[in-house]
Write a protein that binds this DNA or RNA. Structure first.
Lengths: 350, 350
DNA sequence: CCAACGCGAGAGAGCGCTCTCTCAGCGATC
DNA sequence: GATCGCTGAGAGAGCGCTCTCTCGCGTTGG
């Protein structure tokens, strides 16, 4: 196979295939697009000609007439970056959680022949760029992963009327489907584990209370404890980072030194909490039992390994892709969100 | 702003702008594309009309005639996935290293108005799909992140004659530019650190020896030790995973129980090695000093925090983007690879 | 036996844009 | 004063594809 064969001077077009097969352009187009009304004999001829010429349809020409692109945007919306602390863009890309989302999406998109354009929105300029990109129909739909509560993008996306699916319930109610794990059920699982392990003085480290997911986990924690007859459990708020978790743990211990169980609303924060607990001389899980949330890579690399509430991230992402493809096919469909059941992964920490 | 304003029934075209401004399509096109030969007065009129109509050029139509797409592919090439162990695609996406690459690329691509299509190649089918995607000119160029030595993609990419840049030197020499860190220099830094810290019985945990980067790190380790008068240092091979690192550390300790310093060729493996060292009752860094490689998130979350060789991943990725954009603009240019200098990040483990 | 019908295939009109070609207008040159 | 050259703007030809419209031909029912 010579380089020339790989890169013909003039790319093969429908016209070339039609000439080779001795049919019209229209017929080749029918065969390529799987139209049913083609004589089997002609179909065979065309398929041979496609094979012989190495024809592949030109996406730009196709999009121009169909108004579809067979690609979607995966949009990551972040807070504007700090000029000093973050010299490069895209904190979220390094989060393993994000990688799992990408994997789950591709699992559905690839067989459907849909490409994924990765975009980052982190200021007014990039938001405007993205929206005009969208309106010109460069992509057929959007999966939005938004990391902050005050993000105007869910609303703007809904107003655009274009197909879109959200990863997680947005802070503001918008008429767009979202996919999420049952946060309250997850928190209940964590509490039940701690209680059935004999823990009685149970606290929690919650995420930022302006984020719906974080609030639901705290509410679920309280409800579950209440059903065990406990109210007014101690809690501390942190920012979903390891450092934040470590600090929150210190505050919690200062308040309740004889704490014997803690539900931490993310594995990353739990990692920090573990550090604080170990440094203050506690033995795990004997003195304090810890349950995390996410079942991320971090949960496995903890010492002791973290018992945690698992969200089926890949399955959820795959479902987002399916929802979006459905919405693209049937734009009028009512947005139907999906809530997944979490599971408890039992390891050493509780 | 009404939804209708956001999503006009018929999208705004050049024609509309031309009519509004009272000029020809060609003139609008000139203004939009920044051609110099336009009367300032007309230019102003056209710009007003663009603003008033909310015009954004249709990428498909533009691509059709220019044969450019203003987008590139970020291709992740992985070993075929195991049906059981990996129910979902794309192991690499969860690697923070990959996220840093994405961030570095976007840092250059976004200001250039170039979009990034994320593709995964993990079997013959997806490889063929990708190559035909490429040949049809759906993207202007490719950044290839290949994780295994036997990958035929670098060669195929080179043969295609299309613009492409590799992340890391490929196992087989191909006429494509690559961007890499100076592996040998990094290994030397690690060794120097261990030696200057008074370590004398130094070993290494190397990566898979069919990967060029892993081999260079081992070679560099040996050269550096040799320059300190040490030859025949103990080493063990692992697969760049945490578990592999832990096992390799056990083998190394079985061979040399009084080891007092170890260079581990990746932070992830170092994390595993640390676990083994702690579990065998060693105190760090007093008994054994450990230096990793990458300066990934893992290095910071270790106990003790990992002294490690930092590669400027984001800068390297940004340089890949620049190389690729240059290659797209000047396809004839000779491929010129770039090798970056690593730095040593000093933490607690050595 | 003829009209009505259905199915398969071709003709051709664009989709929205870029870019070459052409030409008008105007100042400079001989 | 006629010609030349140059600048700026319009006309129009496609880029490669899809899809509607049309038409031919074979079949069937009255």
């Amino acid at each position: 196979m010579t380089p020339d064969a790989l890169r013909p001077a003039r790319p093969v077009t429908l016209e070339d295939v039609a000439r080779t097969a001795g049919v019209s352009r229209a017929t080749v187009s029918r065969v390529v697009n799987g139209a049913p009304t083609v004589d089997p004999e002609l179909r065979r001829k065309v398929e041979e000609a496609v094979e012989a010429t190495g024809y592949v349809p030109n996406q730009a020409a196709r999009s121009l007439v169909t108004q579809r692109t067979d690609s979607i945007a995966l949009v990551v919306s972040e807070q504007e970056r700090r000029p000093v602390a973050a010299p490069f863009v895209g904190r979220m890309f390094t989060d393993p959680h994000f990688g799992r989302v990408v994997g789950g999406l591709l699992d559905v998109l690839r067989p459907a022949g849909v490409q994924m354009v990765l975009m980052l929105v982190d200021d007014d300029t990039s938001r405007r760029q993205f929206l005009s990109y969208l309106r010109q129909g460069h992509v057929d739909g959007t999966v939005l992963v938004s990391s902050h509560a005050s993000d105007p993008l869910p609303r703007l996306l809904a107003e655009s009327g274009l197909p879109a699916v959200l990863a997680g319930r947005p802070a503001v109610t918008v008429p767009l489907p979202y996919v999420e794990v049952d946060q309250r059920a997850g928190a209940r699982m964590a509490v039940d584990r701690l209680v059935s392990g004999g823990r009685r003085r149970i606290g929690t480290i919650a995420g930022p209370q302006d984020m719906p997911a974080a609030r639901e986990r705290l509410d679920g924690f309280r409800d579950a404890l209440a059903s065990h007859g406990v109210t007014g459990a101690p809690w501390a708020e942190a920012d979903f980072t390891r450092v934040g978790g470590a600090e929150a743990m210190r505050r919690l211990l200062a308040e309740v030194p004889d704490l014997d169980g803690v539900f931490v609303a993310s594995d990353l924060m739990a990692q920090g909490a573990l550090q604080t607990l170990l440094r203050t001389g506690r033995r795990l899980p004997r003195d304090v039992a810890v349950v995390g949330f996410d079942d991320s890579e971090a949960a496995r690399s903890c010492e002791p390994a973290l018992t945690t509430v698992r969200q089926p991230v890949e399955e959820m992402a795959a479902e987002m892709a399916r929802l979006l493809l459905g919405l693209i096919k049937q734009p009028g469909d009512a947005p139907l969100s999906m809530v997944f059941r979490p599971t408890l992964v039992e390891r050493a920490s509780a």
